[in-house]
Structure formats: structure tokens, C-alpha cells
Amino acid sequence: MNRKKRIYLAGPLFSHAELEYNCKLRDSLLKKGFSVFLPQEDAEDTTNERERQNQECIFKKCVGGMDGSDLVVAVLDGVDVDSGTAWEIGYAYAKEKPVIGLRTDFRSLSDGIVNLMVEMSIIDLARDEEELLKILEKFR
């Protein structure tokens, strides 16, 4: 029996809207048969946890989540890509893990969709959740 492919879901997690969107996206990925590492839950990366545990603990849990994942889905919305998400993309690229970007934001840079280094590190870019799920079909 094939094991479920594990996705590390990278994205900003600092506002209520971002947290809710990440959970919505996670649920969609779970319904498609993937296993998902969601840092805000699996690494307990919340304001309360940052106050209670040291940041090194959260960092190590996230790195472990990346190491244990088969691929990364990175939310690239915003004027610029979230700095933590950019680091996660670079780490995944260095580990030769495929990264699929998701950018629902219609804004773009004058010379590209997102930062050049981020754009060149991803293997595909989805513009909405439906397109993302279609792209992920080849990884099941």
C-alpha cells in the first residue's frame, strides 16, 4: 500500500485571516489524500507558544517537518513573500524537495510575479486552490 505523500504547508501565520486560510487549505489537501504538516499547529507556532517555549524549539519542529515532507506548498500572497516562507522555500530547494507556489494575490512586481529567487525555486505556480489541487494530482 502506498503511503500518503506529506506536504509541508508554508505561509504567513500572523493574522487571524492567515491562520484561517492555512487551515482551510490544509483541509482541502487532506480531502485529496495528502498528509499535511501545518506549522501553526504541528510546530505550535503561536503567540502563546512563542512566549512559553524558546524560538529554537519551534524552529527545530519546523525543520523536522520540512525534512519529513515530500513536497512543499508555499502561499506567496502579499506585497512580498513572507520572510519565513521565503526561507522555507530556499531550504526545500536546497534539499531538492519540489515546491509548488500558490499566489491568489493579483498584484505583481514590475519584472515578475514574485521575487526572482523565489520564483526560480518553485516548480509550478497556482493562482487558486482549484489549480493547486490539479497540479498536486501528479504527486499522489
Rank of each mutant, 00 (worst) to 15 (best):
D77F: 00
R50A: 10
E130M: 07
E44N: 13
V63S: 01
E41M: 05
V72N: 03
F34P: 05
C62F: 02
W87Q: 08
D82S: 03
L136E: 11
I135R: 10
L76I: 06
E96N: 14
S83P: 00
G90Q: 02
E56K: 14
G68V: 01
L71Y: 02
A10Y: 07
R127E: 06
A86F: 08
M66Y: 02
E20T: 12
F59H: 14
D42S: 13
F139W: 14
R50S: 07
T104S: 09
I113V: 15
Q55S: 09
R6F: 00
V36M: 10
M66I: 15
S15A: 10
L13P: 01
I123V: 14
N54G: 00
N22M: 15
T85Q: 03
H16M: 03
S15R: 09
Q55N: 11
K95L: 13
D67W: 02
E96Q: 10
P98A: 10
E130I: 09
L125A: 03
Q55V: 13
E18S: 07
E88M: 01
Q53R: 13
E129K: 08
I100P: 02
L102Y: 05
G68E: 13
G64W: 01
K4R: 15
P12Y: 05
V72Q: 08
P39E: 12
S110M: 06
F106M: 11
G11D: 06
S121K: 11
E131N: 08
F34S: 11
E44M: 14
L25R: 11
N54T: 04
Q40E: 13
G64Q: 11
R3A: 08
L109I: 01
I123L: 05
S108I: 06
S110D: 08
E51G: 02
L125F: 03
E129V: 14
L136H: 08
A94N: 13
A126W: 06
F106N: 13
D111N: 13
E41K: 14
T47S: 07
K5H: 06
F59W: 14
V36N: 08
L133G: 04
T47A: 10
G84W: 03
M117C: 04
G84Y: 08
S110L: 10
V81I: 12
R3C: 02
S121V: 11
I58W: 09
R50K: 14
P12D: 02
K61N: 09
K95A: 10
D124W: 04
G64Y: 04
G11E: 07
F37I: 14
Q55C: 01
I58C: 07
